[in-house]
Design a protein around this nucleic acid. Structure first.
Lengths: 213, 213
DNA sequence: TCCTTTGTTGGACTAAAGTCCAATATACAG
DNA sequence: CTGTATATTGGACTTTAGTCCAACAAAGGA
């Protein structure tokens, strides 16, 4: 892991930056166009960042940034460009770019940017991995268990939940215990924190009078 | 509330932008220098944003941005400049600027930026107000109660906490109940969430064997 | 010195939550 | 039709947590 993708239509730039980035100890993979990169499944690259030329024939760098965002690919991007202007750089940064460097690219600027981008990628990756873990557990819950969990983490008492769901306290206890087991937590505090992370009480439960028996 | 501060050493710019901003329905207050603005207690301005010229005699805009950050003043900043370059704009954005607009400033660029900046200020203000509320309650806790709260929100049982703190379960119950009361929560789930917001288990408690009796 | 705050603890319960073992009822897939 | 997953419930307890009343000790201030 720790991979750097480089997308630039100028082969001499690719050659020079490849040498630089490789000598800094990173894995590097280059592409001559945004389309080519986009087809390479960058979402599966693990911890990686993207050094991206702005002006290219076909899809340009900023458009690729939008396309990646639209595809939910969160790889950190460092733009490089020979003919940029302020609005362009500002837009790129607003859209989440790590840096925006004028060409010719100085290694004292590029290498720290890459380091920072990879650090960000690493955090994002860890965060995403944790969320996936949690959602995987959530997927093992039955619909009823999910309902119970959503109410439990609000702090409601079992008897209140039972009334809300039109059943009895005993049943809630059973569901609740299965929720704890399936979510792999050993304390209620942990369950609350898990629920916070995935934003659990987000389901629009019908307000007011719900199903009674 | 909803105030716009404008800092620019050029009085004709101040005049023109004041008219524009006022006509858009915002309160505006202008300053001819960064120092002047800095002395005006901007941290107490409520929901507000700052339109800031980069190049000024004395403290320049970017330096003011750093000074504000150092002073923990989080007012959103929109830079305006007549002689900017890409690295300058990128640095400003990295440091959290909302936008970075070239002069002459077009109102179609400035007004949306102000709107966005004020929206951000509003969120920050709400967030800060909530944290202050919580910390105010935390301040009413005795040292011991804080310790107990920190352990309680990890999900430990009263008896475990008692062992950890070298006392008995009964004592923990008392502290715990006072914590709930002083923090003004009616459920354990709420307490856990409050603790999350202020990052409660952050105190470096001595690891391993702690105080026994 | 006297009072307040803080930290403790006991007794006596009540309430809530959790556990084990069992048993029904329904819907659905094979 | 039969087995499985889901949802439900009872009984019988055990553990935990919470509540009310009372009391005591040490530290610090007024």
């Amino acid at each position: 892991m720790m991979k750097v993708f480089l997308v630039d239509d100028d082969s001499s730039v690719r050659k020079a930056l490849t040498r630089l980035i490789r000598s800094a100890g990173y894995d590097i993979e280059t592409f001559a166009s945004a389309q080519e990169f986009f087809k390479s499944k960058p979402e599966a690259a693990g911890v990686a960042c993207l050094v991206l030329d702005v002006r290219m024939p076909g899809l340009n760098g900023l458009e690729l940034q939008q396309a990646l965002r639209a595809a939910n690919v969160t790889i950190p991007i460092i733009f490089i460009t020979g003919h940029g202007d302020i609005p362009m750089s500002v837009n790129a940064m607003k859209a989440g770019a790590v840096d925006f460097l004028p060409k010719p690219v100085r290694q004292e600027a590029l290498l720290p940017a890459i380091e920072q981008a990879l650090a960000r990628a690493s955090r994002q990756d860890a965060e995403a991995a944790e969320l996936i873990q949690i959602e995987r557990r959530l997927d093992t819950l039955t619909p009823r268990e999910r309902e119970v969990m959503a109410l439990v983490v609000t702090g409601m008492l079992n008897k209140q939940i039972a009334y809300e769901l039109g059943t009895v306290e005993k049943t809630i206890k059973v569901h609740r215990s299965r929720v704890m087991e399936k979510m792999q937590v050993s304390s209620f505090a942990e369950l609350v924190r898990l629920a916070e992370k995935v934003g659990i009480p987000e389901q629009n439960r019908s307000p007011g009078t719900s199903a009674r028996r």
